[in-house]
Design a protein around this nucleic acid. Structure first.
Lengths: 207, 207
DNA sequence: GTCTATAACCGGATAGAC
DNA sequence: GTCTATCCGGTTATAGAC
């Protein structure tokens, strides 16, 4: 019983790594088994097919992503000079600590894989829709009260996510273009954070 | 001779579509042949393997992307109030007219496919490095002369590309989150363009 | 729960006729 | 240049012993 749980976990860990590295189509059940220190039959014993294994992995990982968004935007106080730097910092830190998430997302998002489509829709409906509406209201109110300039809330949220996520999404290309920037990840993210917060605050606070 | 060129072209077109839809690993030579109205043997007659076919397609498509970047940033006049709106408009329009490029990029960029790595490195060295250095100097000069605030040129370029590219990169997720926004692409891109230019100009012009 | 062996199929690649 | 038939290795999945 103890041993079995451990095998199941090892398979999940190995599968996550392999799906991230090779994508759904490139992933090989044999490689997952090898990395888990098990054999293929065990994978089919715990999960029933490659599809079901992928769905389990994908759902689990994207749950964390959507939960994070909940925490990120869930702030009672909307004072922009405190909220925006905090949000950018939390988002970048989270992405840095879960580097496989943006990678997996980038790979599978355009794959037309029905599993991906279904999971994204469901997770979104369950855990993102309500608070996203809240955030939009917050931003709209902040605009009316003069805390920030009046901007389209949806566009602002897009800009926020775009600026934060982009570094991780395009790391392989950017690390070719500016290799020295990627030599020191700490420094890179610190500079990225500063630049993003700078642009946002300067671009949003009323003059 | 005439017919042969046409077959080659048809294969290339079909291959582009299939590689975009399914990714390198998911693409099937049979499907490419079918869509080209040819048979598998013809693909191997013109291209010698799946790898070489992919390299041809990938190189061709990414050449256009890198050429576009050259045009985008190649402006003698750096007056930000004219340059920035123009750049955002050209970039978004280009991406809109070549929707397969960001999709292919998102899919293959994290694949560790040596072909991708090689092509990106080469194209970058050939056509991007020189003018990117130029742009950085332009931005630095604009900062010193007071045309814009003093910002890190590399970070500004990242922000520019991030804001523009993100809409296309994450369309499948965003269209789930805000389906009404994606009902009318023209309107969506017009609003996106306005929001990006607004943030950039307000965030960059000196007070 | 774990493992070996193997079925059943698929996909890239080629031979060879026309 | 074009097409059919086929090879062959690899991949998902299962049967069945322990």
């Amino acid at each position: 019983m103890k041993e079995s749980e451990s095998t199941r976990e090892k398979i999940k860990e190995a599968a996550t790594a392999v799906f991230v590295e090779r994508g759904y189509d490139g992933a090989r059940m044999q490689e997952i088994a090898d990395r888990a220190g098990a054999n293929k039959a065990m994978i089919y014993y715990y999960f029933n097919s490659k599809d079901e294994l992928f769905e389990a992995i994908f759902t689990e990982n994207f749950s964390t992503l959507f939960e994070m968004f909940g925490k990120l935007f869930d702030v009672p106080d909307f004072n922009p000079e405190e909220f925006l730097p905090r949000l950018v910092h939390l988002h970048l830190t989270f992405l840095r600590n879960h580097p496989h998430l943006p990678r997996m997302m980038a790979r599978e998002i355009h794959s037309n894989n029905p599993i991906v489509d279904r999971v994204v829709r469901q997770l979104f409906k369950e855990s993102a829709r309500p608070f996203l509406d809240e955030v939009q209201k917050h931003i709209a109110r902040a605009g009316k009260s003069g805390l920030i300039r009046k901007v389209d809330p949806v566009q602002l949220i897009w800009n926020l996510i775009a600026l934060n996520l982009f570094t991780f999404f395009t790391e392989p290309i950017m690390s070719v273009v500016w290799p020295d920037q990627f030599a020191d990840t700490d420094k890179l993210l610190a500079e990225r954070e500063r630049a993003i917060v700078d642009l946002l605050l300067y671009g949003l606070l009323p003059r």
